[in-house]
């Protein structure tokens, strides 16, 4: 019987949180996906695992910015994530360079996104201005 993806993700998240990622476990997951013809679901599965990790207190966020983040910015990100996940015990920020982000930072979470870029602020400002005009 086909197992729901959420169930597989729950199992992977639980195991990795308890015992970390071992090569043997990685191989088991790979073999399972292969035998069930579900390799295509790997990206979605990883997103589910990340969400499960976050719910369990381990939040991994990807921060997209044009330049390296300074300590203040990282602290600000941690504070923002804390508001979303109050039970978060560990927040890991993985920095990713994106030249498209001219100013500010975009924070990627498993199933949502914080857009703290200048572009986003300008867009919001524009929308508010148009709404006020009308």
């Amino acid at each position: 019987m086909k197992q729901p993806r959420a169930r597989i993700a729950g199992y992977v998240a639980g195991k990795t949180l308890q015992k970390g990622v071992s090569p043997k476990f990685v191989k088991e997951v790979a073999a399972y996906l292969l035998s069930e013809h579900r390799v295509d679901e790997l990206a979605s599965l990883m997103r589910d695992v990340q969400a499960d990790w976050a719910e369990s207190g381990y939040v991994e966020v990807a921060a997209y910015s044009a330049h390296p983040l300074n300590a203040v910015a990282k602290k600000d990100i941690t504070r923002q994530v804390k508001t979303l996940y109050p039970r978060a015990r560990s927040i890991v920020i993985t920095e990713k360079r994106d030249p498209g982000v001219i100013g500010g930072v975009r924070i990627g979470l498993p199933d949502r996104q914080f857009d703290l870029t200048v572009e986003s602020k300008l867009r919001t400002f524009k929308q508010l201005a148009i709404a006020g005009k009308d």
Binding site: G20, V26, V29, A30, L33, V39, L42, M46, S90, V92
Partner: peptide
């Protein structure tokens, strides 16, 4: 790896390589 070392990108890459 310990809990603090967990990275979804790494896990994803590892599984992809194993597949």
């Amino acid at each position: 790896s310990s809990q603090t070392d967990l990275s979804i990108t790494e896990l994803s890459d590892d599984i992809r390589a194993a597949i």
